[in-house]
Design a protein around this nucleic acid. Structure first.
Lengths: 210, 210, 210, 210
DNA sequence: GATGAATGAGACTTCATTCAT
DNA sequence: GATGAATGAAGTCTCATTCAT
């Protein structure tokens, strides 16, 4: 006598709410957010068109949740970047941050891109518990790490961790964004060979005259 | 003998085509590209709904032209970044690039942002004569400049101009993009104090241990 | 569990799809197909503007279905023409064909007429299961009948059933078509007195000198 | 100091009015009347969009005139059908009528077809001096001819010229109309072999048992 | 709660007609 | 009179949202 469950859920133990978020997320990852309709999502979820409104205020609400889920899931899949200063060597840790940033942006920016035209979604997304602040967080995290290494004396005492972090993460943006602006699909974005090495060398030694 | 002019053009000597582009550009700058309708544009231009189609293939065509005009006009207003190696000193030249990049991205990214969900517009934009390649050009330009300075011996012979350029321009993105993702209007984006100085110092001297 | 029904369907057990076809058919019969808009049809059906697209690919699709339904219903109401050779007498059977043809064309041609300018509708109509081939079928049917009577010796052994059938059915067109071309509404088409008798006599005995 | 002539008329001595009619007629003959716009006509005439309204009440007016011109020109090109009873032999004269009717309908019906949905055009056309009444005239003309032959004793004294004429001309319709309804372009309409012979034989001798 | 057809505002686009030049 | 851009009503279609079942 408990209320009927959507047929698409038979067997699973997921709530319909989560199921819808997962479906929207899958579409976001697969096709981007460009022409995404409520009906598309319902179809992907194998669920009636209207259910959405039993669980979310409106389309924007669902999209914000899906975006959040997407970011969280990408970050989960990437694992945490090195945060413990003093471990490993600085070069490798930096390289790890760069790898992380590249993969993160390639996976996340396209989803954000399609939603930049939907302020309601962004607003609602901003109100959600920050999965890591969609990239901005990575910058802060890297800055913290660099500062800690400086404390340990593994970086120059007069180095500027904020500036360095901004440049490193920004460089990752720079690889992805121009491609999006030219309409290149995320899957086809190519990373210039030696990209990470060049960045690491430059951020550590600079390019000024000795 | 000549046909009638649009009443909105009274007095001016602009073509209606340019008038429409200007109107679309103004809306783009003022309200973003979010919910921009053909009617909005016509209203802004004080012109009949249908005129648009006497001058452009469709809405996307007009938007692409407006985007192009916007980029061109911003770049014109910013002036050219320093391109002659050997002139002035390197630090100041770098600072000029950074200023340029920041202003450019603050002015341009919001317009692009709203159009990322409209591949047709991006495609058509890509087909237009490149005003300077929408930001990507600045990176290449800076790389060229840095390479030239290296030839002159004003930069380290083993420095990596590509990496440095990517980092500098990327850092400019990094200032703007997270704000857009959070829905902050372009006008309210704040540049961290000492931003340019930090970047210049880092890119020249690095943050590695001496 | 079942979704909502259109309020216009209150009481009936018709599907909204059929309801829409019926409404379009009614308009076709009442006002012709001249300036028929999607909105007209929705209003006639007492239904929201957009429903149409839940049941048909587009306007043309609906019109093709309505045309089909119209033809079918007319043919159903007219009953089958005599097809069994040897039954009754040939004169009366011919007269029946003529009556049938006249009524059919008066009822059908105006509907077709308005759609001749819409190739998409005609194409889609041609793809539907043939209700009786929209008039052409009647000619073939009559030819078959005449051929069978000839086999039985009730018509001249050197008579030409194809030619005769073409002439008889064509004569029915000839009554309707010039009226349409002059803009006479279908309801006001008058059949010349003695029309059927004259045709029967002529087709059987010819007008050549004995 | 006489008013300027349209550039498209340079050299010719046609009035612009006639030039426009000719252009519309050409389009009608070439592409049918389906999606014919005022602009199409102006472009075909190599003339400004608006001139039309200096010479015709509106689009419908021009189309009616063009239709009239088309019919007239087709009939002129076909030459007059045999009208003098007693000349030649009846069979050949009948054949001539049939040829005439077929060519006439193939040339004319498509033009009418596209206009059946435009009652205003038909009404205005009906008000014009009858070029020969677009086919209906041919029927009457044939009936007159047959009646005259009957007077001369070259046809049966109890034959029915009206019925015969209706059947013959109707048969010509029957060849063209079903093709139009199926969307076959006028140029591809095929006339069954032996068509005229079968008709002549049938109308003269009938198909009844001797 | 789930269903999915119905709703209807609103988007883009066409095109006959007007009218300043 | 001729020009042809401007006008704006009207048409088709989409899609977020509602709601009877």
């Amino acid at each position: 006598m408990s209320p009927r469950r959507a047929s698409a859920l038979r067997g699973g133990d997921q709530s319909l709410r989560d199921h819808l978020i997962a479906a929207a997320e899958a579409l976001m990852a697969r096709r981007g957010t460009a022409g995404l309709t409520v009906r598309d999502i319902a179809r992907e979820a194998e669920v009636a068109d209207g259910v959405l409104y039993n669980h979310f205020a409106d389309k924007e609400d669902l999209l914000a949740q899906a975006l959040h889920a997407h970011v969280s899931s990408v970050e989960r899949s990437l694992g945490a970047p090195p945060t413990r200063a003093g471990a490993g060597d600085v070069e490798n840790n930096l390289r790890a941050y760069i790898e992380h940033g590249l993969r993160l942006h390639i996976a996340i920016l396209p989803a954000f891109a399609g939603l930049l035209a939907q302020p309601k979604v962004l607003t609602r997304f901003a109100g959600l518990p920050n999965p890591m602040a969609g990239g901005r967080g990575l910058r802060a995290c890297l800055a913290d790490y660099l500062r800690a290494e400086r404390e340990l004396g593994r970086l120059a005492p007069d180095g500027d961790p904020e500036a360095a972090a901004t440049m490193v993460i920004g460089a990752c943006h720079e690889v992805v964004l121009p491609n999006l602006l030219r309409g290149v699909p995320a899957g086809e974005i190519e990373i210039p060979p030696g990209f990470a090495d060049g960045l690491v060398a430059t951020v550590l030694r600079g390019i000024g005259p000795s």
